[in-house]
Amino acid sequence: MTKEELIQSENLVYKKPRLLNDTTMHYCPGCSHSLVHKLVAEIIEEMNIEGDTIGICPVGCAVFAYRYIDIDWLEAAHGRAPALASAVKRMWPDHLVFTYQGDGDLACIGTGETIHALNRGENITVIFINNAIYGMTGGQMAPTTLMGMKTSTCPYGRQADLHGYPLQITDIAATLPGTCYVTRQSVHTVANISKAKKAIRKAFENSMNHKGASFVEIVSTCSAGWKMTPDKANQWMEENMFKNYPLGDLKNE
């Protein structure tokens, strides 16, 4: 059998989702953002709701998310994505409205908006990419930075007396009565990608069924900010990030 005989449309088993367009993503090689974009595009395509979906872009590395997935998008001010999503979902209750935010956007400048939108039980999904660093601005310390982790603004490692402790925003979200589904996933292996995809799909279905706010944290890598190769960054994440951010469902109602 030759390659040409095998490369036929009837033998196709996996390709880039149709909703992920041909624009090359600006993310660094091996970035978890790209993979989560791919998952979101796959899920919206499988649920067949591309015309009824409105995504809210954050400020941060994912600020250009609207360039890559062919659905309707809005761009929020820094940290204000859950507030904007609340408004959009109330105007279009039959649409899927989700925000896509990093840890600098969601857990730092937008903590207030995030907690209040979740606590109000808005029927939105929040996708939270946690890589424990400010990736876009050059690897500064974020609220989620691990103890002892070196960044450009804590070059000797994060210390409790000087910088405080990592913020467990997902654990906080799980205590709020407005949330119906709170989970923490990762996308570094095939099995974890499959679990993360199921989690995002469940969150989207909850939003469509008006069950309350869903919160999906994806523990991610930032190979450029952590100054590692992408596969080393995955290893480092397994060894260090998962101790502080254990994977699994925190709330499932």
Binding site: M1, L6, I7, Q8, N11, L12, V13, Y14, K15, K16, P17, L20, T24, M25, Y27, G30, C31, S32, H33, S34, L35, K38, T189, V190, I193, S194
Partner: peptide, 22 residues
Amino acid sequence: NGCTSCAIVCPDGCITVYRKKT
């Protein structure tokens, strides 16, 4: 064997997989 693992972990969706039983 067309297991698609490489394509699933590819962050940028660069890999298309074809598979057939022979």
